[in-house]
């Protein structure tokens, strides 16, 4: 799985170089690819459709992300299709290495998103989108071990609002996103769904805010609220990121992420690295 992640990264870089990307949107305005494969920030899905497609165009992108914290390492890779800046379809694969304990957990995520209203720059109100992420664990043994009620699959629903304000802060563009997610997932589903502590859907709030230092450089922060269904002290996630979007073919993000306590092991912090390549 690690090898696959590396291969996909290499393929991403290669394709990013040679591809003819759909270029109907302004630079940086589709955002990035978030950890579960949806168009977004890093940890949080946004209302933006992931590619550079405008109303008459389609787009395709591939991404690879790695998060290395003290006792775990998450590798994510996947692909995303944008249809007419209206619909987004995504697939992602997660491999979660338990680097201290040994072993790994993997899951597949299939996502869809529909833009309900607006344009991230041009409409008076923020762009709005409704999304879904369906996750399937390859092997539920760890989820069962930690007490998850469902150790095979689960579905998250989310509503996102995203807006870019041109020149809002002394001439610099600001971007913000607010997402409400209905979820039963423990650690994004890697530890199954529900538990002895709580087995109902809960609405979690997620947010991102950033400033565009130039056309191609974004500095920002993120927050993702998480439920504690297992009673293992699962904590909210935070990150601070810098993204470089040199052209409409590729973007690169580095972040410092605080994932809190994972499966009872506290203080999981480390480096988040992500690349997205746009094929057309």
């Amino acid at each position: 799985m690690k090898k696959l992640g590396l291969v996909s990264l290499a393929v991403t870089c290669l394709l990013a170089d040679y591809a003819l990307a759909g270029e109907g949107k302004l630079l940086a305005t589709p955002g990035l690819t978030q950890i579960e494969g949806s168009g977004g920030g890093g940890l949080v899905p946004w209302a933006t459709i992931a590619g550079y497609d405008s109303r008459e165009q389609t787009s395709a992108s591939v991404f690879s992300t790695s998060v290395s914290v003290d006792d775990y390492r998450l590798s994510a890779w996947g692909a995303n299709i944008g249809l007419y800046d209206r619909v987004e379809l995504s697939v992602a694969r997660h491999t979660f290495d338990l680097t201290s304990l040994g072993g790994d957990i993997s899951q597949t995520i299939v996502g869809a998103k529909v833009r309900l209203y607006g344009d991230v720059i041009y409409s008076d109100w923020p762009q709005l989108a409704l999304g879904v992420q369906h996750k399937q664990l390859s092997d539920g043994s760890v989820a069962r071990l930690v007490g998850a009620n469902n150790s095979s699959q689960g579905t998250d629903w989310y509503l996102s609002a995203t807006k870019i304000h041109l020149g809002a802060a002394g001439g610099y563009n600001l971007v913000w996103n607010l997402t409400a997610r209905a979820t039963k997932a423990n650690q994004m589903g890697l530890l199954g769904y529900g538990g002895s502590h709580d087995d109902d859907y809960a609405i979690m709030l997620e947010g991102s805010a950033g400033v565009l230092l130039s056309r191609s450089l974004v500095l920002g922060i993120e927050y993702r609220q998480k439920p504690d269904n297992l009673g293992l002290g699962e904590q909210d996630w935070y990150d601070a990121f810098i993204s470089y979007l040199p052209n409409k073919h590729v973007n690169i993000t580095a972040a410092w992420a605080d994932l809190g306590s994972i499966a009872g092991v506290r203080g999981q912090r480390g480096l988040y690295l992500s690349i997205t390549g746009y094929l057309w």
């Binding site: 270029e23 109907g24 949107k25 302004l26 630079l27 405008s54 109303r55 008459e56 165009q57 800046d85 041109l166 020149g167 002394g170 001439g171 610099y172 563009n173 230092l213 130039s214 056309r215």
Partner: peptide
């Protein structure tokens, strides 16, 4: 004029402003 035509022209305007020496914040305003 489509959305992509419009954004493409915005890109040309940005280039024109850059060439004329406007700073990034001035361009955004």
């Amino acid at each position: 004029i489509t959305e992509s035509d419009f954004n493409r022209t915005v890109d040309l305007l940005i280039d024109a402003m850059t060439e004329a020496g406007l700073s990034h914040p001035q361009q955004n305003k």
